[in-house]
Design a protein around this nucleic acid. Structure first.
Lengths: 211, 211
DNA sequence: TAGATTGTTAATCGATTAACAATC
DNA sequence: TAGATTGTTAATCGATTAACAATC
């Protein structure tokens, strides 16, 4: 937990560790060595130890790592212990799928509202949360501190709603819409492009056939 | 287009190039230099040229790259020109969202069937395609060559349907379900974990606040 | 204590960047 | 031709792996 710059690539591996450690807990495994974890995750044990040591080291010589402690600490690094609040904008199929996605709550994310501008869904409930009009977004955010906006609207409207959300203080955006967002300094955006892995998959099966 | 091993990291960047080049075409930009492209994509121009040169080079000195030609060639490398056929297994919110996702067709993927085992949706149409029973999957695959299965079913059933699909010759799997698949040699799996970018986002906004 | 396994340093490997000659 | 920009080599940088002393 020190402040020497941790490489981005290490950060992007943390969610994967977090996931595997959760699996171990589900199997009632309370303790694991870097060797065993690396075998399961298909990486080198050196990498596992190096990664963890960017944060000071969570293990004990001769013993290994306590699974629960390690997962909790990784969660803290990722800021999951803060219980990020989130809203979903867009209640189409994707927005609904995200609203119902169990993994978010499991990682401490709290879905506090869903917005859409389709009359037909306004007032209906998704996973217990009533869908509000996008027109109510600004007012809502005035009264409620929200950390993250999950954007699941068509490309044409995404910049607009993101601007509103940013203006009202939202700092994190998970964008599922096509196209890049232009947002003010100090906001963070993660873009999810679901065709990307499909394309790399296409490459791999093509290569597999050619060989 | 040679066969010296191209680094994986280059392959994972190709979809992003493909995307940006598409945007350029939409703006009727027919020609671009590595410098200009790198500025837009926020990478170095050296990287752009190096990446393309893994495949022999697509440009012309003093001119730059022809956008359409470059995109087509990248598409070929990714195997998009083959017109991969795909099925979706799981017609819940996520499956529906994927079935309606315009980006797939745009990249040459042909959705040929949707399967689910929920009585309520059997026979209904999603994006013009009738939902079939998962029981019909094996029979369907006997008569039809399919390249890719997109898995959008609950964790509990994902290994089962993937086994069936693999047995019937499907070589590529895009897995949206939690948990890792064990599949035979020669099959390729891409796992999509939508909480992962949410977690890195949490890290970034936390860091932003701390600084 | 002896055995195991971490934390950490040093060596290797690969990817990115810089630079420039080739050439359109 | 002169200017622009690639293709490509060489230099730098950073990440991964190997190795082992520290220590539980």
């Amino acid at each position: 937990m020190d402040n020497k710059k941790v490489p981005d690539i290490v950060i992007t591996r943390l969610p994967r560790y977090y996931r595997y450690l959760g699996e171990l807990l589900d199997q009632d495994i309370t303790r694991i060595s870097s060797g065993e974890l690396s075998r399961r995750m298909n990486v080198s044990s050196s990498q596992v130890r190096q990664d963890f040591n960017h944060f000071g080291g969570f293990g004990q010589q001769g013993y290994g790592y306590n699974v629960e402690y390690l997962q909790t600490e990784i969660g803290k690094i990722l800021g999951l212990d803060r219980g990020n609040s989130a809203i979903i904008i867009g209640a189409g199929n994707l927005g609904r799928a995200l609203a119902c996605h169990g993994g978010f709550a499991k990682r401490g994310f709290k879905l506090v509202a869903i917005f859409d501008n389709n009359e037909a869904v306004l007032g209906t409930k998704i996973n217990g949360i009533e869908v509000q009009s996008v027109d109510a977004l600004e007012e809502f955010l005035k009264n409620r501190k929200v950390d993250i906006a999950i954007l699941a609207v068509p490309k044409a409207s995404v910049q607009g709603v993101a601007d509103t959300a940013a203006k009202c203080g939202i700092k994190g955006f998970l964008n599922f819409s096509y196209g890049e967002l232009k947002l003010p300094e100090g906001t963070e955006v993660e873009n999810v492009h679901i065709s990307d892995p499909l394309m790399t998959l296409s490459y791999k099966i093509k290569k597999g056939r050619d060989e």
